[in-house]
Write a protein that binds this DNA or RNA. Structure first.
Length: 199
DNA sequence: TATACGATCACCT
DNA sequence: GGTGATCGTATAC
Protein backbone atom coordinates (compact mmCIF):
# COMPACT_ATOMS: atom_id res chain seq x y z
CA UNK A 1 0.00 0.00 0.00
CA UNK A 2 1.16 3.54 -0.69
CA UNK A 3 2.74 5.19 2.35
CA UNK A 4 1.31 8.37 3.78
CA UNK A 5 2.43 11.40 1.76
CA UNK A 6 4.55 14.27 2.96
CA UNK A 7 1.46 16.48 2.96
CA UNK A 8 0.04 14.33 5.75
CA UNK A 9 2.92 15.35 8.01
CA UNK A 10 3.01 18.97 6.81
CA UNK A 11 0.33 20.12 9.26
CA UNK A 12 0.04 21.35 12.84
CA UNK A 13 1.83 18.87 15.08
CA UNK A 14 -1.17 18.09 17.28
CA UNK A 15 -3.28 17.39 14.18
CA UNK A 16 -0.67 14.96 12.89
CA UNK A 17 -0.49 13.24 16.29
CA UNK A 18 -4.27 12.74 16.24
CA UNK A 19 -4.23 11.67 12.61
CA UNK A 20 -1.57 9.03 13.18
CA UNK A 21 -3.84 7.04 15.49
CA UNK A 22 -4.93 3.91 13.64
CA UNK A 23 -2.29 4.27 10.89
CA UNK A 24 -0.03 1.31 10.27
CA UNK A 25 3.64 1.59 11.23
CA UNK A 26 5.65 -0.77 9.01
CA UNK A 27 9.23 -1.94 9.52
CA UNK A 28 10.97 -4.20 7.01
CA UNK A 29 13.70 -6.02 8.92
CA UNK A 30 15.77 -8.91 7.59
CA UNK A 31 13.20 -9.45 4.86
CA UNK A 32 10.38 -9.75 7.36
CA UNK A 33 7.51 -7.30 7.53
CA UNK A 34 6.78 -6.11 11.07
CA UNK A 35 3.74 -3.89 11.47
CA UNK A 36 1.19 -2.58 13.92
CA UNK A 37 -1.50 0.07 14.25
CA UNK A 38 -0.39 3.21 16.05
CA UNK A 39 -2.42 3.54 19.24
CA UNK A 40 -0.64 6.21 21.28
CA UNK A 41 1.16 9.42 20.29
CA UNK A 42 2.42 12.65 21.80
CA UNK A 43 2.98 16.00 20.07
CA UNK A 44 6.07 18.11 20.71
CA UNK A 45 6.46 21.69 19.58
CA UNK A 46 9.24 24.23 19.29
CA UNK A 47 10.57 27.19 21.23
CA UNK A 48 7.23 27.66 23.01
CA UNK A 49 7.26 24.10 24.35
CA UNK A 50 9.71 23.60 27.21
CA UNK A 51 9.11 19.85 27.17
CA UNK A 52 10.32 19.52 23.59
CA UNK A 53 13.84 18.75 22.46
CA UNK A 54 13.32 21.57 19.96
CA UNK A 55 12.74 24.10 22.75
CA UNK A 56 16.30 25.10 21.90
CA UNK A 57 17.85 24.42 18.55
CA UNK A 58 20.84 22.08 18.96
CA UNK A 59 22.63 19.67 16.62
CA UNK A 60 20.45 16.85 17.92
CA UNK A 61 17.12 18.63 17.57
CA UNK A 62 17.96 20.28 14.25
CA UNK A 63 16.04 17.61 12.37
CA UNK A 64 12.83 18.76 14.06
CA UNK A 65 13.32 22.10 12.32
CA UNK A 66 13.64 20.46 8.92
CA UNK A 67 10.98 19.32 6.43
CA UNK A 68 8.19 16.96 7.59
CA UNK A 69 7.96 13.22 7.09
CA UNK A 70 11.37 12.29 8.44
CA UNK A 71 12.18 9.97 11.34
CA UNK A 72 13.78 11.40 14.48
CA UNK A 73 15.20 8.60 16.61
CA UNK A 74 17.03 9.31 19.85
CA UNK A 75 18.61 7.27 22.63
CA UNK A 76 17.54 7.89 26.22
CA UNK A 77 18.16 6.64 29.75
CA UNK A 78 21.19 4.78 28.50
CA UNK A 79 19.10 1.90 27.20
CA UNK A 80 16.05 2.96 25.24
CA UNK A 81 15.33 4.34 21.79
CA UNK A 82 12.34 6.53 20.95
CA UNK A 83 10.80 7.04 17.50
CA UNK A 84 9.44 10.42 16.42
CA UNK A 85 8.02 11.73 13.15
CA UNK A 86 8.96 15.27 12.11
CA UNK A 87 5.97 17.53 11.39
CA UNK A 88 5.25 21.03 10.05
CA UNK A 89 7.07 22.82 7.29
CA UNK A 90 10.76 23.48 6.87
CA UNK A 91 11.89 25.93 9.57
CA UNK A 92 8.85 25.25 11.77
CA UNK A 93 9.89 22.74 14.48
CA UNK A 94 7.65 19.91 15.59
CA UNK A 95 7.53 16.14 16.00
CA UNK A 96 5.22 13.36 17.12
CA UNK A 97 6.47 10.67 19.52
CA UNK A 98 5.16 7.19 18.70
CA UNK A 99 4.39 5.74 22.13
CA UNK A 100 2.60 2.52 21.28
CA UNK A 101 1.29 0.18 18.57
CA UNK A 102 -1.08 -2.79 18.37
CA UNK A 103 0.96 -5.59 16.72
CA UNK A 104 -0.52 -6.93 13.46
CA UNK A 105 2.20 -8.53 11.35
CA UNK A 106 5.34 -10.43 12.26
CA UNK A 107 4.16 -11.02 15.81
CA UNK A 108 6.40 -14.07 16.17
CA UNK A 109 9.42 -11.94 15.36
CA UNK A 110 8.23 -9.28 17.76
CA UNK A 111 7.99 -11.82 20.57
CA UNK A 112 11.55 -12.97 19.93
CA UNK A 113 12.90 -9.43 19.76
CA UNK A 114 11.14 -8.57 23.00
CA UNK A 115 12.56 -11.55 24.84
CA UNK A 116 9.35 -13.48 25.30
CA UNK A 117 7.47 -11.00 27.42
CA UNK A 118 3.69 -11.21 27.65
CA UNK A 119 1.97 -10.17 24.39
CA UNK A 120 0.35 -7.27 26.20
CA UNK A 121 3.79 -5.75 26.65
CA UNK A 122 5.13 -6.24 23.13
CA UNK A 123 4.95 -2.60 22.03
CA UNK A 124 2.95 -0.60 24.59
CA UNK A 125 5.66 1.99 25.24
CA UNK A 126 8.02 4.12 23.14
CA UNK A 127 11.12 2.15 24.13
CA UNK A 128 9.31 -1.14 23.57
CA UNK A 129 8.13 -0.10 20.10
CA UNK A 130 11.71 0.51 19.06
CA UNK A 131 13.01 -2.71 20.54
CA UNK A 132 10.21 -4.75 18.97
CA UNK A 133 10.69 -3.20 15.51
CA UNK A 134 14.48 -3.02 15.61
CA UNK A 135 14.54 0.77 15.42
CA UNK A 136 17.82 2.41 16.41
CA UNK A 137 19.60 5.70 15.79
CA UNK A 138 20.74 4.15 12.51
CA UNK A 139 17.28 5.10 11.24
CA UNK A 140 17.53 8.69 12.41
CA UNK A 141 16.83 11.01 9.50
CA UNK A 142 15.16 8.37 7.31
CA UNK A 143 12.50 9.73 4.94
CA UNK A 144 9.33 7.88 5.93
CA UNK A 145 7.61 8.78 2.66
CA UNK A 146 10.20 7.02 0.50
CA UNK A 147 12.03 4.50 2.70
CA UNK A 148 11.49 0.77 2.18
CA UNK A 149 12.78 0.01 5.69
CA UNK A 150 10.44 2.15 7.75
CA UNK A 151 7.21 3.83 6.68
CA UNK A 152 3.58 4.45 7.61
CA UNK A 153 0.59 3.11 5.68
CA UNK A 154 -3.07 4.14 5.84
CA UNK A 155 -4.73 1.99 8.49
CA UNK A 156 -7.98 2.15 10.43
CA UNK A 157 -10.25 5.15 10.77
CA UNK A 158 -10.41 6.07 14.44
CA UNK A 159 -13.55 7.97 15.52
CA UNK A 160 -13.21 10.72 18.12
CA UNK A 161 -15.32 8.69 20.52
CA UNK A 162 -12.49 6.17 20.79
CA UNK A 163 -9.75 8.72 21.44
CA UNK A 164 -8.61 9.82 24.89
CA UNK A 165 -6.71 13.10 25.08
CA UNK A 166 -4.50 13.73 28.12
CA UNK A 167 -1.49 15.78 29.21
CA UNK A 168 1.83 14.33 28.18
CA UNK A 169 3.74 11.74 30.14
CA UNK A 170 7.08 12.45 31.74
CA UNK A 171 6.72 16.22 31.77
CA UNK A 172 7.80 17.70 35.09
CA UNK A 173 6.50 20.68 36.95
CA UNK A 174 3.16 22.39 37.05
CA UNK A 175 3.78 25.04 34.44
CA UNK A 176 0.50 25.63 32.68
CA UNK A 177 2.10 25.60 29.27
CA UNK A 178 3.31 22.06 29.87
CA UNK A 179 -0.11 20.70 30.67
CA UNK A 180 -1.22 21.01 27.09
CA UNK A 181 -3.40 18.02 26.11
CA UNK A 182 -1.05 16.72 23.46
CA UNK A 183 -1.15 13.02 24.21
CA UNK A 184 -3.53 10.96 22.09
CA UNK A 185 -4.55 7.42 23.06
CA UNK A 186 -6.71 5.12 20.96
CA UNK A 187 -9.05 3.27 23.32
CA UNK A 188 -8.78 0.10 21.21
CA UNK A 189 -9.76 -3.24 22.77
CA UNK A 190 -6.28 -4.58 22.04
CA UNK A 191 -4.51 -1.44 23.12
CA UNK A 192 -2.65 -2.57 26.22
CA UNK A 193 -1.57 0.78 27.56
CA UNK A 194 -1.47 1.33 31.27
CA UNK A 195 -4.60 2.94 32.60
CA UNK A 196 -5.33 6.27 30.95
CA UNK A 197 -6.03 9.06 33.38
CA UNK A 198 -9.32 10.84 32.97
CA UNK A 199 -9.16 13.87 30.74
C1' DT B 1 36.57 19.19 30.44
C1' DA B 2 33.08 17.99 33.93
C1' DT B 3 28.65 16.86 35.62
C1' DA B 4 23.66 16.41 36.09
C1' DC B 5 19.69 14.45 34.29
C1' DG B 6 16.11 12.61 31.13
C1' DA B 7 9.77 12.23 26.04
C1' DT B 8 11.79 4.73 30.10
C1' DC B 9 11.47 -0.07 31.41
C1' DA B 10 11.71 -4.20 34.26
C1' DC B 11 11.91 -6.16 38.41
C1' DC B 12 11.27 -6.17 43.38
C1' DT B 13 8.08 -5.93 47.32
C1' DG C 1 3.95 1.31 44.02
C1' DG C 2 8.82 2.11 44.36
C1' DT C 3 13.44 2.08 42.53
C1' DG C 4 17.83 0.89 40.04
C1' DA C 5 19.98 0.45 35.45
C1' DT C 6 22.92 3.21 32.38
C1' DC C 7 24.88 6.81 28.84
C1' DG C 8 24.28 10.56 25.36
C1' DT C 9 23.39 15.28 25.44
C1' DA C 10 23.23 19.85 27.08
C1' DT C 11 24.94 23.18 29.96
C1' DA C 12 28.10 25.21 33.12
C1' DC C 13 32.78 26.00 34.52
Amino acid sequence: MTPLSRAFFDRATAAVARGLLGQRLVRALDGVRLAGLICETEAYGGSDDMASHAFRRTPRSAIMYGPPGYAYVYFIYGMHHCLNVVTEGDGQPGAVLIRGIVPEEGIEALRIRRGGVDDRHLANGPGKVCQALGITVALNGVDLTTSAELFIEPGAIVPDAEVAITPRVGVRGNVAALDRPWRFVWQHPENCQTAVKAV
